[in-house]
Computed example of a mutant assay.
Amino acid sequence: MSAPVGPLLAQLQQLPARSRQGINDLRRRLFQQGEKPKKEGQFLRTSLSVHRPVWITATGGVYTSLAAVYLTMRYLKRVR
């Protein structure tokens, strides 16, 4: 009956060391999160610069569509 108690005591003695290791891992993750947005921000800037022609074309299309709607509404007033 004392045989199962030995491994249990050994695991209980290792518990503080494992919990310190877990706390250290958590602390590292929390403080390294400050570095991640910099990398994501760099990725976002790179992505926007790569897709700049697409954004310019899309903006031009939206502007043209809004101008067409505005002119249509303006000329529909004169139709009545």
Rank of each mutant, 00 (worst) to 15 (best):
L76R: 15
G34Q: 07
V5Y: 08
A10G: 05
P53N: 02
Q11H: 08
K38F: 07
L15W: 09
V5W: 11
Y70V: 06
Q32Y: 02
K39V: 08
G60F: 01
G60L: 04
T59I: 10
P7A: 07
K36Q: 12
T46E: 14
Q32K: 12
L8V: 07
N24K: 09
A3P: 01
A68K: 14
R27Y: 03
R20L: 01
L9Y: 06
N24Q: 14
K77P: 00
Y70D: 12
F43N: 13
Q33H: 03
A58Y: 08
L44M: 04
S49E: 15
L30P: 01
I56V: 14
R27L: 02
P37L: 01
R20T: 00
R80M: 08
V79W: 15
M1K: 14
G22N: 07
M73N: 11
M73K: 13
P37A: 01
L66D: 14
P4W: 09
A67L: 12
L48Q: 11
T59P: 00
R78T: 06
P37W: 03
Q42M: 06
V54N: 09
S19A: 13
D25K: 11
L15F: 05
W55D: 09
S47E: 13
A68L: 09
V5N: 06
Q32N: 09
T46N: 12
V62E: 14
R74F: 02
L12Y: 05
L30K: 08
V69I: 15
A68G: 02
Q11S: 12
R80S: 08
A68Y: 04
R28H: 05
I56P: 02
K77F: 08
T46K: 15
T64N: 09
G22L: 10
V69T: 14
Y75P: 00
Y70H: 10
L30F: 03
L66Q: 15
